[in-house]
Design a protein around this nucleic acid. Sequence first.
DNA 1: AATGAATGAGGATTCATTCAT
DNA 2: AATGAATGAATCCTCATTCAT
Lengths: 196, 196, 196, 196
Amino acid sequence: MSPLNRQQQLDQIRDERREQIKQAALKIFARRGYTGTKTSMIAKEASISEGLIYRYFNSKEELFITLVEELMEEAKRELKYVGYLPGTPFEQIRTLTKNMLDDNNMYAFMLMERARTADDVPDKVTQIFEEATNVLIDPIIPIFVKGQESGEFSPGEPRKMLSWYFTIINSLLTQEKIDEEFGLPDADVLIRILTN
Amino acid sequence: MSPLNRQQQLDQIRDERREQIKQAALKIFARRGYTGTKTSMIAKEASISEGLIYRYFNSKEELFITLVEELMEEAKRELKYVGYLPGTPFEQIRTLTKNMLDDNNMYAFMLMERARTADDVPDKVTQIFEEATNVLIDPIIPIFVKGQESGEFSPGEPRKMLSWYFTIINSLLTQEKIDEEFGLPDADVLIRILTN
Amino acid sequence: MSPLNRQQQLDQIRDERREQIKQAALKIFARRGYTGTKTSMIAKEASISEGLIYRYFNSKEELFITLVEELMEEAKRELKYVGYLPGTPFEQIRTLTKNMLDDNNMYAFMLMERARTADDVPDKVTQIFEEATNVLIDPIIPIFVKGQESGEFSPGEPRKMLSWYFTIINSLLTQEKIDEEFGLPDADVLIRILTN
Amino acid sequence: MSPLNRQQQLDQIRDERREQIKQAALKIFARRGYTGTKTSMIAKEASISEGLIYRYFNSKEELFITLVEELMEEAKRELKYVGYLPGTPFEQIRTLTKNMLDDNNMYAFMLMERARTADDVPDKVTQIFEEATNVLIDPIIPIFVKGQESGEFSPGEPRKMLSWYFTIINSLLTQEKIDEEFGLPDADVLIRILTN
DNA sequence: AATGAATGAGGATTCATTCAT
DNA sequence: AATGAATGAATCCTCATTCAT
């Protein structure tokens, strides 16, 4: 095997391992919160030794912050594209809502919500959310306004209505233990909050 | 002072202290979750020494479970009275919703919600909620059905709609850090979920 | 017991405990260096639990730094008084030398010397010594010069000669395992370095 | 290339690598002590991977012991030749002193001294020094006695005077951080200890 | 009843050592 | 022979709980 390949191979291992740790951490942090998550749990979930975590992250805190930052970036990216989705404003926001409720994103939103909500997280995380609240809502405002103008959405201060709407969705996602019988509410029901 | 009075006085001190500890614990558990709460924080909030907690509760776990049980009992009691509130079913449920969102009850609901959703709580608490879910919704179902019949509420499986509705309200209450600008959503907006 | 007495009693316990920990730490740090000293060793030497150390010092590092700082202060204080000792400059410096070699001060000098010498100490300690080197020698210089003038001491740049002299004494003190047969060199022999 | 040459080549690589590791280890152990030295530091100083150390030494402990033993052997060898150096006993011992203080030998003496004085070294090392103390001094005694007889050295129990003298020199060598301005004391000043 | 000093089990983190490549 | 990823025992530190006063 050529030296180049060898290096590539190691890089790949590192990338995979890092990803593996982040996935495991995401799952546990989302369910048990920052303090409730023990590094041993993350190691077990990732099927690695506890020590290995520290070759990839300097501390539990750094791991947590990294997760929050990356998820936040991704969220921002996604929200920018809502305006380019097909359909009316109502349909665009319904699609966004559906995506948020999707199983694949669930842990991410749960973690974000816990991170935003809980008082036992690193200060830096608190900061990130203080700075970012509007960043998430701003790109949706023009869409919502267009929907109000066309009568699809009910009147009301747009920023306020959207803040409430996303607060509800986010907080829903925090819950791992959703009612087993009925699961999470439909996007169709949730969007009623905006339509009256 | 007679021995009896003396005894009564001591009992009263004990009751007051116990209540004081519970109030402090409620506040901190609600904000920081079970693991995130240190007994030292509770002691500080209650302005007592750390050791004193253990004259009133055998352990942090027992204190937490006691809180959850008592709050649960209270919730059950309140729900039974919804049917006797004045007004139409819609108005009754709106009043209930308002009460739940009220500042005075907030910590209680926050704690309950955290207790219900988090994975880092004592097993016993998990059990309590597994057994109790329906207990909370059942007494409201007939009211909701009446509202559907009178056209105040939109159609749909009652247990499902109410489960979603309360899931939303509960999950909202988890959030200590509500948007500072807008606060929690109005009961009037939330109830749209049931009315369409 | 009056509340005041109670408070005094607690203060005394705290003072004693703190002193006890410092004494134990001094002994172990002096012999095993910073890294070689485990908190468990300090606890054992002080006959307390490992955890208790942390009610008195925030970290092993803080404990070490505290020791160094306090010993340094004491050293400075003592050196100021050398000029007021009875006798000629030669006799004054011989007395100082004897004091330094005294068993009671030994651990203190050993620790200081290790702290000054080793590369595995907290940065702050390195700084302290960088700033302090001259502070220790300066008050002795005039005494030495007087001795040179009177012919008691051999000629040579005073700061240089004294720097060498104290380097030797300090470094001697680092050694716990002194030759069992002969012990540390006499002050009378050491002072030859200055007299020729 | 013949198999033999191939083998020789490999042997040579092995020897070089082993030497390289020992040199690096010497430098770090000398400065940071046994416990304060991490294998990763040695690897970095030797510009090799951490794992490679273990193809040449079974453990950090073995590496340390090996160093001490080899340096000790070398020291013994050198001391034997002091009597054959040119000049009077005084001049012979001054030359020895100069050699000891020489930069090239410095790390070796530093390590030896740390190994001798510190309490955090493997037991075997402690033993080596317990057995060897006299070995170092013995060959110098007749030289010193000759010097006393000729009046070059001051009177006094020879073993005692030499023990003190070498204790001083050794302990000086422990110090990596010598006063930057003046460096280590001259051999000419040190030897005053023996001359009065 | 109340305090706060003390304990020790458990959690985060480090580092000597092993192992697959 | 050499690398560096991986392990886990040992270390520093925290915190629920106990105990002397």
